[in-house]
């Protein structure tokens, strides 16, 4: 009853095939509604993490992009070039879709010291779904994800499209998490930065791990402010010493927030942590640009919203 007939016509193939594709290893064929050359190199699908939602319940929806070898897509901060993947969800009233959850990207250094933050081979962007009590057993909900992306290899090409998936409402549903969703969920950064020491030394952002034993490599993927790039991310955005010192220009002074993701590679493999920190103010800078204290700005934990989403 909640499914739009018009939208069903537009995305018919995607809707009919979604259940069969949800757990399969292969991406679906290009949708007839896809636009742009990029969709010759990127296949998309949309799926839920369960077979049905209970009334008033929650689920996770994910849009997966399978990327042809040699090509890449872009993180929420594309870096020095490119364009972030853009996803807009369309759902009936009574359905609340949370912020996009972005798996950690990979650094791509090239050209005149440029750094992009990219995905190769595959990425899935996830979002939490909540429904209110207007939905009852037997209803169905259709969610459509419209996307735009830039795929690059040696050259860049634009693509756009939409994928839909339908989930039923039932008293009991069972989890049916596609392997690709599990894999991408593991790369979603944690929102607790308590394991990291984040501070400022003048206009240098310092990041280290409290438990440094075993921390082999740190990388920083900045996401905010979008208008100010670190001065030399191609050099200082990665460290083997357990301490990242990321230089910013004077432009960072007074910016409301610096945010990003820290990748920590230790003996147990990589982990990813969202950080937010308030950069120095002009007063603090004048007071002692090279002294971490007493002008060290406070850091705060990301709670609900990811900067850049």
């Amino acid at each position: 009853m909640f499914v739009s007939v018009v939208r069903l016509m537009l995305v018919g193939i995607a809707v009919c095939c979604a259940p069969a594709l949800a757990g399969g290893p292969a991406a679906q064929a290009p949708d007839p509604g896809d636009q742009g050359i990029a969709m010759e190199h990127v296949k998309a699908e949309l799926a839920f993490d369960r077979t049905a939602m209970s009334p008033g319940g929650t689920a996770t929806v994910g849009i997966r992009f399978v990327i042809e070898d040699g090509w890449h897509l872009y993180w929420r901060n594309s870096g020095d070039s490119g364009m972030p993947i853009s996803v807009t969800f369309d759902a009936p009233k009574g359905v609340r879709i949370g912020a996009l959850q972005w798996p950690a990207p990979k650094r791509h250094v090239y050209g005149v010291g440029s750094v992009d933050y990219i995905y190769e081979h595959e990425v899935a962007l996830l979002a939490d779904v909540e429904i209110d009590d207007r939905f009852a057993t037997g209803d169905e909900i259709e969610i459509t994800a419209s996307f735009e992306l830039l795929a690059c290899k040696e050259a860049c090409v634009f693509g756009a499209g939409a994928r839909s998936s339908v989930i039923g409402i039932a008293e009991s549903g069972s989890m049916s998490v596609p392997d690709w969703m599990k894999k991408n969920r593991e790369r979603i950064p944690l929102r607790d930065q308590s394991s990291l020491r984040v501070r400022w030394d003048g206009t240098d952002l310092l990041i280290s791990v409290y438990e440094r034993e075993g921390a082999q490599r740190l990388s920083f993927f900045p996401s905010a402010p979008a208008a100010v790039r670190p001065s030399k991310p191609e050099i200082d955005g990665i460290s083997e010493t357990g301490l990242l010192r990321i230089a910013y220009s004077q432009q960072i002074i007074g910016a409301p927030l610096v945010a990003g993701v820290v990748e920590v590679v230790g003996p147990d493999g990589p982990s990813w942590i969202e950080i937010e920190t308030t950069p120095p103010t002009a007063d603090a800078d004048e007071g002692g640009a090279n002294e971490p204290t007493p002008h060290t700005p406070t850091t705060k934990q990301t709670i609900n919203n990811r900067s850049g989403d």
């Binding site: 070039s81 490119g82 364009m83 090239y110 040696e154 050259a155 790039r229 432009q251």
Partner: peptide, 12 residues
């Protein structure tokens, strides 16, 4: 006076 440019990487 400055902003962050966007686009394709220059094909040097």
């Amino acid at each position: 006076t400055t902003s962050r440019s966007y686009g394709c990487g220059v094909k040097y």
